[in-house]
Write a protein that binds this DNA or RNA. Structure first.
Lengths: 193, 193
DNA sequence: TATCTAATTAGATATTAATCGAAATGAGGC
DNA sequence: GCCTCATTTCGATTAATATCTAATTAGATA
């Protein structure tokens, strides 16, 4: 469970204007000026909010000639609303706790006391847990030179090349012109879900 | 549907510290210092966040000797998470729209062009719609003298006494020592739900 | 290419709010 | 009646952010 993503979702929805936009889009796609008109706000303000909504992957857009239509991404809405609801269910909470302690156990098994990675797990599930632990030290939005990324990984394990490649394969990061960057959290949702 | 209440809920949950508190409380009640300890924050900060969580009726507390235990209100959590999720469902959206236009029609029927209430509906459902329309002009948290409240109601209808009484009966407001106040939104939830 | 329109960016302002240390409150125990 | 300990309040500081106006970008069309 990605705390940041969840917080980002709730923070984004915690604004009257954005909630109203979501209500509007629930009835069907609209273009920017139409939204601005219905809400009595200026287009720049709408752009601002649509950016926020896009950041959490709650809206997407399509162009038709000169105007951009905004659509609600219903699956994200349903999924994210569900996370907190689970906390209201004792059974679900127990499951999460088990998941968590399992996760922690894997990390403890594969890392030494002083934080080095002993070896890369063969089992896919455990491998991903390890990678997710590793990328926690990387900054969202920061662009990493390959060399810089190698250095970071080397703190944990000498085979930085393999791990760096795995980061890409598993979509934790992406590369553009030799520059590496964390995949925005909201993209993961799609891949995971 | 109360937009403010919904926004308040999401805004409140859009904070990492509060989400973490909710996750902690989902496992069971805790006292303030325990929360502060687990999150690495100071007691005043925890008080601050618990106040926010209390405002949306998501936590309640019980005293045992000198220490206060905080509990998660699971039903509120489940209910509020569900509201937005409905927007992901076309059927539900249609229902809401119908509800809305029905509501509007009732308001248009019972109010004159210049905003006066023609008469108090006999049908309970319509009556409540009218009252909810009326209290929209009152301020949350403000304390009203009976006289002041009468004046407010008189703008709409001369039989202020009946309407004032209905406000109390239907729990839109409560009275204490002759002072009237809107019932906090979060209380309604309980009454409505 | 010039022009129209929709959308975005930039910059400025004002408001909100997360956090902390210090001080105040309040209930129990002695 | 004092003392202790958990909690709350107060005040200050710092960081975000919602909104606007003005300026810019970019696609479409004539």
């Amino acid at each position: 469970m990605q705390l940041n993503r969840l917080v980002a979702f709730y923070k984004t929805m915690g604004d009257p204007t954005r909630i109203r936009i979501v209500f509007l889009l629930a009835k069907g796609p609209l273009h920017g000026q139409a939204i601005a008109g219905k809400l009595g706000l200026t287009p720049p303000t709408i752009t601002h909010h649509l950016n926020k909504l896009r950041e959490i992957n709650l809206v997407y857009q399509r162009r038709d000639k000169n105007t951009v239509y905004f659509y609600l991404n219903e699956s994200v809405l349903k999924h994210q609303s569900g996370v907190l609801a689970k906390l209201a269910d004792k059974e679900e909470v127990k499951k999460m706790e088990e998941q968590n302690s399992e996760n922690q156990k894997v990390i403890e098994n594969f890392f030494t006391r002083d934080g080095k990675l002993k070896n890369i797990p063969a089992q896919r599930k455990k491998k991903l847990m390890v990678f997710e632990h590793l990328i926690k030290g990387l900054k969202m939005g920061k662009k990493y030179e390959e060399k810089e990324l190698n250095e970071y990984i080397k703190q944990y394990h000498e085979d930085y090349a393999t791990i760096r490649r795995e980061f890409i394969i598993n979509h934790y990061m992406y590369r553009e012109n030799g520059i590496y960057e964390l995949n925005p959290q909201e993209m993961w949702a799609k891949i995971e879900g």
